[in-house]
């Protein structure tokens, strides 16, 4: 451990604002890249489930 206390760790020798904001930006971008495909997958399933349900309904009424 190169820091004596947790507050020293947060302060980063006076550069805390820069270090933590850089890590925060990185976290945001990584989170975006991880969440985006999950949302895309969800939307795809929603859309195509609905589509299939509609197709099924149409087939049933045709019979």
């Amino acid at each position: 451990m190169s820091f004596d206390s947790f507050s020293a760790f947060l302060a980063m020798g006076g550069h805390g604002l820069y270090v933590w904001s850089a890590y925060a930006v990185t976290l945001v971008v990584f989170a975006f890249n991880a969440i985006k495909p999950v949302l895309m997958h969800k939307r795809f399933l929603q859309q195509h489930k609905q589509l299939q349900r509609r197709e099924l309904a149409r087939e049933n009424t045709a019979q």
């Binding site: 980063m12 020798g13 006076g14 550069h15 805390g16 890590y23």
Partner: peptide
């Protein structure tokens, strides 16, 4: 990597702790 880089790596003799941005940059 993040824990090691942020908490355990020694500070740079010139840049102090600001060099820890290197680990993500």
């Amino acid at each position: 990597g993040v824990v090691w880089g942020l908490a355990y790596a020694p500070p740079d003799y010139q840049q102090g702790n600001a060099f820890r941005i290197m680990y993500i940059h």
